[in-house]
Structures are given as structure tokens and as C-alpha cells.
Design a protein around this nucleic acid. Structure first.
Lengths: 205, 205
DNA sequence: TGAATATGCGAGCTATCGCTCGCGTAGACA
DNA sequence: TGTCTACGCGAGCGATAGCTCGCATATTCA
């Protein structure tokens, strides 16, 4: 157990069927992670659930770490692409609308695959390639800091500090609302309170 | 590996030396968790680092889960006792001071053992007895909700929603500041911004 | 059609895991 | 001092982990 050697890709799929195999493996990884948790999610079990031999799995993913890293990548892309496009869209809109939209986008992003997100955040060790999980937050922080710098209608304070507080606060509340599986009306209340929190915080008054 | 059977205590230490053994085991668990991560932290390795035989370890902790649960308990107690006493202290003080004090208390609580806290939050699977980790948050939320209800000088909104947003926001920002190992001046900035965030949010204006 | 290549297979290797159990030793009490 | 019990020990068990490797089958292309 736990040898963690090769983390780079091993072989690239050239034919259609092999691409299907790769997809099946990744999907199975997500399913098994959700149902059994990280340390019970053995590569053998994943291969079994994917309807693929363990040999095939290791033909495309050189290690368990690489496998999970690939899944993380896929999941992160799905979430961030959603948030990034929204952020670009609202760059020039009035602040209240912009904030409301972004918070909704955060909720939507977390709704992509809440259970997987939970496992990825709460159980996957952030070593090696898996560190990307934390990288993304920094990346988003940068974008938000830029967004804040570009605005003159906000209270003045170090943009990096504002971004730090804002990103983590919004992320955490959204995450908690989704992970705690709040019923829709409660979630709605929380989303509104969160919007309120951010708007009050940013207004120069 | 991974049998997870007995989770209740096995034997209670009666003599002094055995209490020392238990302490050594718990401390070693914390150290090994921090240095190797959760899934590399085997019971054998922990016993080794504690200078104790694997047999002795299992004399006091019936399973790895129980061992980690005990450590979680100890860590949580250290953190929450600090926060709870402060919360009681400031119950009747003016809001700005109360908030400032509580946020400082949160930073202090996270400073108790940041690395352990990080591992406990990010890697330990929340199954069985380990769920207590999430229980605490709900508990704190209740206390804060009560605190809010007791005050008439705040904006009116469902106390539970306010508490939800507040607790998760403050927790996340504090946690991030400590885990990211922000240099002191940056941390100070963040703490001030966080205070600002909360005060703005709570003021009725 | 046949050679070359891409893909798929799974028995099984080694390492390590969580944990047991039989036995030796230190301290308490008579 | 002898007896009883709390405490400590560590070889080693069964299970399972991550992963390899030799071989079978499907596909491409000449």
C-alpha cells in the first residue's frame, strides 16, 4: 500500500473505445469515492465498478494519486468554468446585481456534484498533485482582488485582504449550505443573508 | 486493514504510569498525524513514536478510529473551552468589543495546534465517532443564535440564518488565515477586515 | 490477409495494514 | 516475602492495499 511513485500520465487513449474506458474509470472513481469514502476506495474496487480490469486502469493512470488528481481536475474545471464566466459577465454591472449573481453562481457550482465535492474537500490528502485543490482558491482570490481593484465604488482597504475574507467567507457558507443539505427555503434564506453580508461589507458608507 | 469494530474504551488507566502511557500515545498520534498525514499514520508507527509497544496501544484504545476520536475530543475541548468562556464574558459588552474579542478568540483557538487542526479537518474521514468534528459547529451555531436572539440592537432576520452565515464565515476565514500561515501583519489585516465584515452585517442601519 | 500496434485482462507479488494473544514484569497489598 | 493484578511487550496473523507483467484480443493499415 501507498507507494506513490509515478504521477505523470502513462498512455494516451488513441481509439474511441479507450476514451470510453478512461471515462468509465473516472466516473467509477467518483461514484466509489462518494459511496465508500477515500480510504475505502481501492483501485481494485474502482476498476470493478467501472467494469474494467485493474490492468486497464493502470494503463491510463500510473497511480491512485494520479487517478484521483485527474478526477479533481475534472471536477474543478466544471466548477470554476461556471464561476469564471459569470464573473466576467458581471464585471461591469451594478454591485448589488453582481454580488447576487456571483453568489448564485457559487451555489450552482457546488450543486454540480455536492457529494463528490464533499469527499474531495474533506478526505483527500493534499499531497503531491492533489494540492491543486488549494491552488484554485488562491486563483479565485486573485480574480476577485482584481475585480475589487477595478471598482472605485467600494470601501477602501487592501484589496488582497478584502478578497481573502470575501472568498473564504462566501466559499465556506456556500459549501456548508450544500454539504449540510439545507432544504430549499433555508438555503434561500442563507443565500440572501450572504448577499446582504457581502454588500454591507463592500459598501463605502 | 480497516475493520472498525470496537469504538468504546477498553481499559481505564489506574496507575500513574499508565496515564503517562496514554498521554504519550495521544501526543504521538498528534505528531504522526501532522508529519505523515492520516493514511500514513499507522497504529504501529504511532506506538513506535510514543515509545510504547503496539500491544500497549491497543490496551487503551480498541481501534484506530477510537484513538483518533480521543485525540479529536482532546483537541476540540482545548479549542471550544477557550471560545465558550470568551463568549460568556462578552455576552453583555457593547457589540463592537464583543465581536472583536470573539474573533480574536477564534484566532487564538486555531493557534493552539494549527497543523493538527489542519489534518483533522482536511483528512480525517467523518464516520463513526469521528462525526463529532461536525457536531461542534452545530453546537457553536446554537450558542451564537442564542446570543443574537438575546440582543435587540441587531438587524432583524432569522437568527438561525444569521448564525449559520456568521459562524461559517468567521470559522473559514480564521481557519484559512492560520492554515495558509499568513505572516503576522497580514493576519492582523484579515482579522480587522473580518471584524468589520461582521459588525457591518449585524448593525441594523 | 497479415503484420504492427493499441487495448484489455487478471492472477498474483510485495508491502503494509489493523489488531490479537500469550507471556514477562512492576507495583500494591497481605 | 508471597500473591494478585495492572501494565507492558512484540512476534505474527489474516486481510487488503497498490501495482506489475505476461499474455490475449481488437483495430488499423499495408
Amino acid at each position: 500500500m501507498a507507494r506513490r511513485v509515478r504521477t505523470t500520465a502513462r498512455k494516451k487513449p488513441r481509439q474511441e473505445r479507450s476514451q470510453a474506458t478512461v471515462d468509465a474509470i473516472l466516473s467509477a472513481t467518483a461514484r466509489v469515492l462518494c459511496t465508500t469514502g477515500y480510504d475505502r476506495a481501492s483501485t481494485n474496487r474502482i476498476a470493478l465498478h467501472a467494469g474494467v480490469s485493474i490492468g486497464s486502469l493502470y494503463q491510463y493512470f500510473p497511480s491512485k494519486e494520479a487517478l484521483v488528481a485527474a478526477l479533481v481536475e475534472r471536477h474543478i474545471d466544471q466548477m470554476t468554468s461556471l464561476v469564471k464566466t459569470k464573473l466576467a459577465e458581471v464585471a461591469a454591472t451594478p454591485l448589488p446585481l453582481a454580488v447576487r449573481t456571483m453568489i448564485q453562481a457559487m451555489f450552482d457550482a457546488h450543486a454540480v456534484d455536492p457529494k463528490l465535492h464533499k469527499v474531495l474537500i474533506e478526505e483527500v490528502p493534499r499531497v503531491g498533485r492533489l494540492e491543486r485543490l488549494t491552488d484554485v482558491e488562491r486563483q479565485v482570490q486573485g480574480l476577485v482582488a482584481a475585480f475589487i481593484d477595478a471598482r472605485r465604488d467600494l470601501r477602501k482597504a487592501p484589496a488582497h485582504a478584502i478578497a481573502f475574507v470575501l472568498v473564504h467567507a462566501v466559499e465556506a457558507v456556500t459549501h456548508a449550505a450544500v454539504v449540510d443539505e439545507l432544504p430549499a427555503p433555508r438555503a434561500q434564506e442563507v443565500a440572501e443573508e450572504l448577499t446582504h453580508l457581502v454588500l454591507r461589507y463592500l459598501s463605502p458608507g
